[in-house]
Protein backbone atom coordinates (compact mmCIF):
# COMPACT_ATOMS: atom_id res chain seq x y z
CA UNK A 1 0.00 0.00 0.00
CA UNK A 2 2.22 2.77 -1.29
CA UNK A 3 -0.67 5.07 -2.07
CA UNK A 4 -0.11 8.32 -0.12
CA UNK A 5 -3.80 9.21 -0.52
CA UNK A 6 -4.83 6.11 1.45
CA UNK A 7 -2.27 6.72 4.19
CA UNK A 8 -3.29 10.38 4.51
CA UNK A 9 -6.97 9.46 4.49
CA UNK A 10 -6.54 6.91 7.25
CA UNK A 11 -4.61 9.38 9.42
CA UNK A 12 -7.31 12.03 8.83
CA UNK A 13 -9.99 9.47 9.80
CA UNK A 14 -8.15 8.65 13.03
CA UNK A 15 -7.79 12.33 13.92
CA UNK A 16 -11.46 13.04 13.15
CA UNK A 17 -12.85 10.06 15.08
CA UNK A 18 -10.28 10.12 17.85
CA UNK A 19 -10.02 13.85 18.49
CA UNK A 20 -12.36 16.14 16.55
CA UNK A 21 -15.43 14.04 17.44
CA UNK A 22 -15.23 15.48 20.98
CA UNK A 23 -16.43 18.78 19.55
CA UNK A 24 -19.35 17.31 17.59
CA UNK A 25 -22.86 18.54 18.35
CA UNK A 26 -24.60 16.40 20.96
CA UNK A 27 -28.07 17.56 19.90
CA UNK A 28 -30.40 14.80 18.65
CA UNK A 29 -29.99 13.98 14.95
CA UNK A 30 -32.74 14.63 12.40
CA UNK A 31 -34.67 11.40 12.94
CA UNK A 32 -34.40 11.54 16.73
CA UNK A 33 -35.51 15.18 16.77
CA UNK A 34 -38.49 14.46 14.52
CA UNK A 35 -39.42 11.45 16.66
CA UNK A 36 -39.33 13.65 19.76
CA UNK A 37 -41.30 16.51 18.16
CA UNK A 38 -43.97 14.28 16.60
CA UNK A 39 -44.15 12.10 19.70
CA UNK A 40 -43.02 8.59 18.75
CA UNK A 41 -39.57 8.77 20.38
CA UNK A 42 -40.75 6.70 23.34
CA UNK A 43 -41.66 3.79 21.04
CA UNK A 44 -37.88 3.21 20.75
CA UNK A 45 -36.55 0.14 22.53
CA UNK A 46 -33.07 -0.38 23.91
CA UNK A 47 -30.70 -2.13 21.56
CA UNK A 48 -29.71 -5.66 22.58
CA UNK A 49 -26.11 -4.43 22.79
CA UNK A 50 -26.94 -1.27 24.80
CA UNK A 51 -24.75 -2.54 27.65
CA UNK A 52 -21.82 -3.40 25.38
CA UNK A 53 -18.35 -2.09 26.25
CA UNK A 54 -18.45 0.56 23.49
CA UNK A 55 -22.17 1.42 23.48
CA UNK A 56 -22.89 5.08 22.80
CA UNK A 57 -19.37 5.75 21.44
CA UNK A 58 -17.61 5.53 24.79
CA UNK A 59 -15.35 2.94 26.40
CA UNK A 60 -16.95 1.44 29.52
CA UNK A 61 -14.92 2.19 32.63
CA UNK A 62 -13.09 5.21 31.18
CA UNK A 63 -14.43 8.25 33.01
CA UNK A 64 -12.70 11.02 31.09
CA UNK A 65 -15.16 11.87 28.32
CA UNK A 66 -12.54 13.04 25.85
CA UNK A 67 -10.44 9.90 26.26
CA UNK A 68 -13.42 7.54 26.36
CA UNK A 69 -15.00 8.98 23.19
CA UNK A 70 -11.68 9.36 21.41
CA UNK A 71 -10.69 5.79 22.17
CA UNK A 72 -14.08 4.52 20.96
CA UNK A 73 -13.56 6.52 17.76
CA UNK A 74 -10.10 5.03 17.20
CA UNK A 75 -11.43 1.50 17.83
CA UNK A 76 -14.28 2.20 15.40
CA UNK A 77 -11.91 3.44 12.69
CA UNK A 78 -9.62 0.44 13.19
CA UNK A 79 -12.56 -2.01 13.08
CA UNK A 80 -14.10 -0.40 9.99
CA UNK A 81 -10.72 -0.39 8.25
CA UNK A 82 -10.09 -4.05 9.13
CA UNK A 83 -13.51 -5.23 7.92
CA UNK A 84 -13.73 -3.06 4.81
CA UNK A 85 -10.15 -3.52 3.56
CA UNK A 86 -10.54 -7.26 4.25
CA UNK A 87 -13.82 -7.42 2.34
CA UNK A 88 -12.67 -5.39 -0.66
CA UNK A 89 -9.34 -7.18 -1.01
CA UNK A 90 -11.17 -10.51 -0.76
CA UNK A 91 -13.66 -9.44 -3.45
CA UNK A 92 -10.82 -8.34 -5.71
CA UNK A 93 -9.17 -11.73 -5.28
CA UNK A 94 -12.49 -13.49 -5.92
CA UNK A 95 -12.68 -11.74 -9.27
CA UNK A 96 -9.14 -12.80 -10.15
CA UNK A 97 -9.88 -16.42 -9.32
CA UNK A 98 -12.93 -16.42 -11.56
CA UNK A 99 -11.18 -15.01 -14.59
Amino acid sequence: MKNPLVVTGLVVSLVLAGGVSYYASSDPDGLEKVAGDVGFLDSAKESAVEDGPLAGYGVAGVDNERISGGLAGVIGVASTAAVSFGLFYALRRFKKDKL
Binding site: M1, N3, L5, V6, G9, L10, V12, S13, L14, L16, A17, V20, S21, A24, S25, S26, D27, P28, D29, G30, K33, Y57, G73, G76, V77, T80, A81, V83, S84, F85, F88, Y89, L91, R92
Partner: peptide, 27 residues
Protein backbone atom coordinates in the same frame (compact mmCIF):
# COMPACT_ATOMS: atom_id res chain seq x y z
CA UNK B 1 -9.69 -1.80 -3.46
CA UNK B 2 -7.61 0.38 -1.09
CA UNK B 3 -9.65 3.48 -1.96
CA UNK B 4 -12.82 1.49 -1.21
CA UNK B 5 -11.50 0.53 2.22
CA UNK B 6 -10.48 4.11 2.88
CA UNK B 7 -13.92 5.38 1.82
CA UNK B 8 -15.72 3.14 4.31
CA UNK B 9 -13.30 4.07 7.09
CA UNK B 10 -13.53 7.80 6.36
CA UNK B 11 -17.34 7.62 6.35
CA UNK B 12 -17.34 5.92 9.75
CA UNK B 13 -15.12 8.71 11.14
CA UNK B 14 -17.10 11.59 9.63
CA UNK B 15 -20.42 10.08 10.74
CA UNK B 16 -19.23 10.77 14.30
CA UNK B 17 -19.08 14.49 13.56
CA UNK B 18 -22.59 15.79 14.16
CA UNK B 19 -23.00 19.36 12.95
CA UNK B 20 -25.79 21.69 14.14
CA UNK B 21 -28.51 22.33 11.54
CA UNK B 22 -31.27 24.14 13.42
CA UNK B 23 -32.17 24.90 17.02
CA UNK B 24 -31.68 21.69 19.00
CA UNK B 25 -31.09 19.51 15.92
CA UNK B 26 -27.91 18.03 14.51
CA UNK B 27 -27.05 16.06 11.42
Amino acid sequence: APLAGLTATFIFAVQMLNFPVAAGTSG
